[in-house]
Design a binder for these strands. Structure first.
Length: 383
DNA sequence: TCTGGGGTCCTAGGACCC
DNA sequence: TCTGGGGTCCTAGGACCC
């Protein structure tokens, strides 16, 4: 059987690159996207003048030279690169451009898995043309449609392609086959694998395992003993570059949520009114999201983050699926009675889960929903 | 100088049922 | 007087990803 040909396409410094498209005069300068949008999309500030909460969403390669990274707190980034330019994000534009580049890529290879706003996998297996030729066509199609560059990896599976697309950023192209694993993959740190995060790589380092080559030499039994059946066995497969997951070309959302971090920490008692307004606002936005997606929620959850960054969640299943803001708030209130409200909060969130399609719910509760309702106690005793 | 917002999947314990 | 085993649903937390 012929090996698969899977491409991973990753846009270069995506949000920052979109901004440079409409502000070409900023090209070549250190630019950081992040924080709250202040004064509209046109607002450009000096990173060193920023005060407040927030993280770096994207940094241009010029800003990365100062050590600025995605996910880094803005205050820390400001200390590293005070003269970098700071822009608030314009997510509507990023979404629109995202749809444009995905449509352009689909013209070259139609089987696509969406991996968020700036990444896709493509299955090139049945597509006419060599891997390099197809990858170059993808890059040209994306550039013609958007003016943006991307980096592509082509290998026999998703796991390797994801790693490969990172190897020559920006504007990169890397094609690997299974024979390349010892020379190209094994020297890399374990954390390049999608699924090996900070915790797992720290534990691996504690075992003296830093590279994928070192991981590949460990007996699977050892990894299973240390990391559990599922994850341990997977670590072994990943280190050997084995991955037979198909592309997921469409999926239904499992949950929808809204959350917000406050400018300053708020106390549930002293700042009760402000928190109530914030909760109501989150519920209204979540209700709009549910309506837009045409779904109802059979479970509603809240999320609280305290000033010390500890996070708690409380979930509640509902007898009947809900959509409106009032019902969401009612469910949220019930859950709030089950958490500690004696400490300051930095974040409040609300989540809709166990989603039911509006069309399938119709006007009547389904038999399953009726069965879920508790039986009326003593109903038989009524006269 | 503390750490956004939107998701997915996994684990583990308890309730409940057969 | 002490009690099996399996399945499913619910809940909370945590790791991870973009």
């Amino acid at each position: 059987m012929e090996p698969r040909r899977i491409a991973h396409l990753d846009m270069d410094a995506y949000f920052a690159s979109v901004e440079l498209l409409r502000r070409p005069e900023l090209k070549g300068l250190p630019v950081v996207i992040g924080g709250r949008r202040r004064g509209g999309a046109e607002a450009v500030g000096r990173l060193g003048d920023y005060a407040g909460r927030g993280v770096v969403t994207t940094a241009t390669y010029e800003a990365r030279r100062f050590g600025v990274r995605s996910g880094m707190g803005l205050m820390k980034a400001a200390a590293l690169a005070p003269d970098a330019l700071l822009l608030g994000g314009d997510y509507e534009t990023y979404s629109r451009v995202s749809r444009t580049f995905k449509a352009a890529a689909a013209e070259v290879a139609p089987c696509i898995e969406d991996r968020g706003i700036d990444e896709i996998y493509l299955d090139l297996t049945g597509v006419e043309g060599g891997s390099r030729e197809l990858a170059l066509r993808l890059k040209a199609a994306v550039f013609d449609a958007t003016g943006l560059t991307c980096s592509i990896g082509v290998t026999p599976n998703k796991l390797l392609s994801k790693i490969a697309s990172e190897l020559q950023k920006p504007d990169g192209l890397t094609i690997l086959c299974l024979e390349d694993i010892p020379t190209r993959i094994w020297p890399l740190p374990c954390a390049v694998v999608n699924g090996i995060g900070p915790k797992a790589s720290a534990r691996l380092e504690g075992m003296g395992i830093r590279t994928l080559g070192e991981l590949a030499r460990i007996e699977p039994e050892t990894l299973i003993a240390g990391f559990g059946n599922h994850y341990g066995a997977w670590l072994h497969e990943a280190a050997h570059g084995r991955d037979d997951r198909p592309l997921t070309v469409s999926r239904e959302p499992k949950s929808i949520s809204r959350e917000t971090t406050f400018e300053r920490d708020l106390h549930p008692k002293q700042d009760r009114d402000q928190l109530s307004r914030i909760l109501l606002d989150l519920c209204e936005r979540l209700a709009q999201d549910l309506a837009r997606k045409g779904v109802r929620a059979r479970s509603v959850g809240i999320k609280l983050r305290y000033e010390d960054f500890t996070t708690v969640t409380r979930d509640q299943s509902l007898p009947l699926p809900v959509t409106d803001a009032a019902a969401l708030r009612e469910a949220a209130r019930a859950s709030l009675r089950r958490v500690d409200l004696g400490r300051r909060l930095r974040l409040l969130g609300i989540r809709a889960g166990a989603l039911v399609k509006e069309a399938e719910y119709r006007l009547q509760p389904s038999p399953a929903d009726r069965a879920a309702e508790p039986p009326a106690l003593f109903a038989d005793l009524e006269p």
